[in-house]
Amino acid sequence: MSTAIEQTVEARLVAAAPRMPTIPATLFYDRLDPFAVRMSFPAPSTLEGVEVRWTFARELLMAGLDAPEGHGDVRVRPYGYDRTVLEFHSPEGTAVVHVRSGEIRRFLRATTDLVPVGAEHRQRDLDQDLADLLREAG
């Protein structure tokens, strides 16, 4: 059985220009890090010209499909009939992208098939995690 899910989605970057360019973005989920989702943007679509990755809670993405969620660096909210807005805040500025909600729902269904909501803790070896933390602290 696979331990990870990767799905390319079509994202529309909201910019000052009237046209919103489409960029490929990738959603990634790994059962070894069951609470987190990563979203990456390819180098040509970023101001720095390097791939940019954001990591945030799977729960945030799920909740943001139905109502505004998030108060930190990543915020998610529904927009219109079938769009979801993701805002990524950093010291350099804010990036706002629209993604089809159906694409996000399909990705989230695959993640919950891999690791059901509420069962994330079963994917972690808490004893090993604690040993790793103590080793790093010592």
Rank of each mutant, 00 (worst) to 15 (best):
F107Y: 09
R105V: 11
R38G: 00
T8E: 14
L13Y: 07
T111E: 04
P44D: 07
R38M: 05
R77S: 13
R58Q: 02
A57W: 06
R31H: 11
V37W: 07
T84H: 10
E92Y: 09
Y79E: 11
E6Q: 14
A36I: 05
V9Q: 08
A4C: 13
G72A: 08
R106L: 14
G49K: 10
D113C: 08
R135P: 00
T94Y: 02
F88A: 01
L126F: 15
S90P: 07
G138V: 02
R12Y: 12
E87F: 03
R109E: 13
W54M: 04
G70V: 11
E10V: 13
H98F: 15
F56S: 03
V97N: 11
A15H: 03
L134K: 13
V9S: 07
T3A: 14
T3W: 13
R77I: 00
D82K: 10
G72H: 03
R53M: 10
A110H: 06
I104K: 02
F35P: 00
P21C: 12
E10C: 12
T55S: 09
P42G: 04
L134P: 00
R135I: 09
F107H: 12
F56Y: 10
P44V: 07
T26L: 10
T94P: 03
V115F: 06
V97R: 15
R105F: 04
L114R: 07
E10Y: 05
D30E: 12
A119G: 01
R106A: 15
L130T: 05
D132C: 01
P42I: 03
R122E: 13
A4V: 15
L65C: 09
P21G: 11
V9I: 10
D127P: 01
R19K: 14
P24T: 06
P21E: 10
P116Y: 03
R77V: 00
Y79H: 11
G102H: 09
G70P: 04
A17I: 05
F35E: 01
I23D: 01
L61E: 00
T3S: 15
L13H: 09
A110V: 00
R106I: 07
R12I: 01
T46S: 09
V99I: 14
E59P: 00
M62F: 05
V14I: 13
Q123G: 00
E6K: 12
H98S: 08
L133S: 01
S40Q: 06
V117M: 07
V37Y: 01
G118N: 03
A57Y: 08
G138K: 02
Q7P: 04
T22R: 15
L108G: 05
E6W: 01
M20Y: 10
V9G: 00
T3P: 08
P68K: 03
E48Y: 10
P18R: 10
H89K: 13
L86F: 11
S40P: 02
F28C: 04
T46W: 14
V85Y: 00
A63S: 06
D125H: 14
M62V: 06
D127I: 05
P24V: 04
L60S: 02
T84I: 12
A11Q: 03
D82T: 06
A63Q: 11
R77A: 15
P42F: 04
F35K: 01
